[in-house]
Amino acid sequence: MQTRQPMPNEYSIDVQNLTKKFGAFTAVNEISFNTKKGEIFGFLGANGAGKSTAMKMLCGLLVPSSGQATVASFDINKESEKVKKRIGYMSQKFSLYQDLTARENIRFFGGIYGLSNKQIKEKTDELMERLHLTDFANTQVGDLPLGWKQKLAFSVAVFHGPEIVFLDEPTGGVDPVTRREFWEMIYATAKLGTTIFVTTHYMDESEYCDRVSIMVDGRIEALGSPKELKAKYHVKSMDELFLQLARPETVKIF
């Protein structure tokens, strides 16, 4: 089969041999992968496998030691400021300002991403309604339940219509109902063409992704759809696969 050269812009993220070294330690070791428009891509790995370092490079926050990557067609080495404008980001640790209200947070982030006051105002009301947050629009975010906060944070991260949104463990600690509602929001956003790049420690959530990669010691050890990977490694669940790859000697007890 002939390999086809990708057209420019075909991939929302295109990574080739990306590497990051800290002194003698190689945190990310020549990883290569790409994501398509509207794809939900799960980026898995044990703590310390190099996920956060890789993600920081893709968000333009950390300069790679070697290798190439384009994010939203911009080179992360040369055009990191342009990359930052075309992506959204949320994590469990930092997402919103706790002492601003929901409305103020939206205005703040909308302003940062260069939306006009008119655009912000129109979209804010629509968003508040969609999240059933209208009654709480003027409540400080710190006083909202975690699940609402996370849904609001996600909405803020995609507010400026980014091509890719990076989600770093977005559902940690969230109750089972809200966790599922959150994934339904992810599906809806992906359907509109936004690429979702997501890390999670919940292996059932990795099944919701179109494709996943599993990082072990700085390298991508496995890459494919959950179905393909389970068939390839002869395992029943992603949990089993993760344990097999991440620490083969660990015996399964769940």
Binding site: G45, A46, N47, G172, H201, L243, A246, T250, I253
Partner: peptide, 14 residues
């Protein structure tokens, strides 16, 4: 075990 990957969670329960 909050925020800990599945492998470390297993070790902790052991």
């Amino acid at each position: 075990t909050t925020g800990v990957d599945p492998v470390s969670r297993q070790e902790f329960w052991k």
